[in-house]
Design a protein around this nucleic acid. Structure first.
Lengths: 146, 146
DNA sequence: ATGTTTGCAAATTGTTTGCAGGCGG
DNA sequence: CCGCCTGCAAACAATTTGCAAACAT
């Protein structure tokens, strides 16, 4: 598990950007490192509260924003619902099911044509991890067609 | 101009679905038919107010929702900012610039790989007009690189 | 008539901000 | 101790909802 490397690297990055290390920041980073899913700010806050009730939601938002600024964390917009956060470790996009909300990670290849044609035809630089590809997941698709 | 065909078709669809035709509904449809851009609910409300002040925003939301249900109108989520609506006439996706908010329409081809690999690898049915592809437009990209 | 629509106001959801005190380096 | 950080409360943006009156058919 590379949780420690991720966590320590993040702490260093915060320090060297002039930021300070607090218990809550450490928590947030650990929570994101431990989560295999994409968490909303509210979800992160809930987990923080398990060990430290009383932390303000606004603080969590501010910490997440700081981490995004430092490019340690990525946030992606999922059509309906809150923004989700995750450590920006590997390159991937997101497939979000409109029916059940399931988020599936998508390999970079899926975005190749979109990225290259976006650039060549429109001069548009696509940021594939920042947005959600909306649609219907396998199980919902089969459930709906029955 | 096919505004009339679009408008009349929409009115028929509303009638045959059991809905009633009101001045405000007619307005909303005409506004969308006349607009070449993608409008937010707030923007539609503002235009409606030019001729009929006093129409409640909630009414416009309800009308837009009805039109979406009848598949006469499509709405797309643009990362940050409100949802935008447009007549669902031709097939296209949306490239939304994170810097300036510019919305560029994208040809279906850009989504071919995403759609086919999404399906073959994840069984995920991509709905290409429903979400925004976030990134940076030509002018913002060149401005930022300078 | 009768069931759809609307205006109004209040509630929701997700997030941001202002401020005064607290704490990390 | 200096300045980043935090909690709290209030502000915000974009919608959504509950209701009784108004209107389309």
């Amino acid at each position: 598990m590379s949780d420690h490397r991720d966590t320590d690297g993040a702490l260093d990055a915060i320090r060297s950007s002039g930021g300070r290390i607090t218990e809550t920041k450490r928590s947030v980073i650990e929570i994101l490192a431990a989560a295999n899913e994409h968490l909303s700010a509210e979800a992160v806050t809930a987990v923080v509260h398990q060990t430290t009730p009383g932390v303000a939601p606004s603080t969590v938002y501010r910490i997440l924003e700081e981490l995004v600024r430092l490019k340690l964390v990525e946030h992606s917009h999922a059509g309906r619902g809150p923004v989700t956060y995750h450590l920006g470790t590997h390159d991937h996009g997101h497939l979000v099911c409109q029916e059940c909300g399931l988020i599936t990670e998508a390999e970079p290849e899926l975005f190749e044509t979109l990225t290259s044609l976006g650039l060549s035809r429109h001069g548009f630089v696509v940021d594939a991890h920042h947005f959600a590809v909306l649609g219907t997941c396998v199980s919902c698709a089969s459930r709906l067609s029955r």
